[in-house]
């Protein structure tokens, strides 16, 4: 069942991206920024290691919103996010959310993506249609 009333939580998702997800995401997206695929480079610029692409994590947020509406890609009408932290492969990411507006079959979610208590994406809002 999809969440339809204000304050109701969505199912959300949990995923632990494996070590090579940033490499595969780089290939899929064309974003080969070395901070994502070269741990030594990432350390050189002050990061603890290679970090996940922000837009990959946004992709997980989009998946959680779309799945709540039944999985059809037409259901997701709008998604906006703020990137607020780094996230890393081999550590669990949780996407959680709740309904903040509902007008018939048009529903708006507020979502977050969290890794180790750190909100790496926050203030995400998604407009979906259950129509």
């Amino acid at each position: 069942m999809s969440a339809t009333s204000k304050g109701e939580k969505i199912a959300g998702l949990k995923v632990t991206p494996d070590k090579y997800v940033p490499h595969r995401y780089a290939g899929a997206s064309g974003d080969f920024n070395p901070i994502h695929i070269d741990a030594e480079f990432a350390k050189m610029v002050g990061l603890p290691g290679a970090i996940l692409h922000g837009l990959y994590v946004m992709g997980l947020v989009a998946k959680a919103a779309t799945d709540e509406a039944g999985g059809d890609p037409r259901a997701l009408k709008r998604l906006s996010v703020q990137f607020r932290g780094m996230s890393y492969p081999e550590q669990e990411i949780e996407v959680a959310g709740e309904v903040i507006e509902a007008d018939g079959s048009d529903v708006t979610f507020d979502l977050v993506a969290i890794q180790n208590d750190n909100q790496v994406i926050r203030n995400a809002t998604a407009d979906v249609s259950y129509g």
């Binding site: 922000g54 837009l55 946004m58 890609p73 037409r74 997701l76 009408k77 709008r78 998604l79 906006s80 996010v81 703020q82 990137f83």
Partner: peptide
């Protein structure tokens, strides 16, 4: 990358 918004129309 601070923020991102997408609005979709035709698939």
């Amino acid at each position: 990358h601070g923020g991102q918004e997408f609005e979709w129309a035709e698939p």
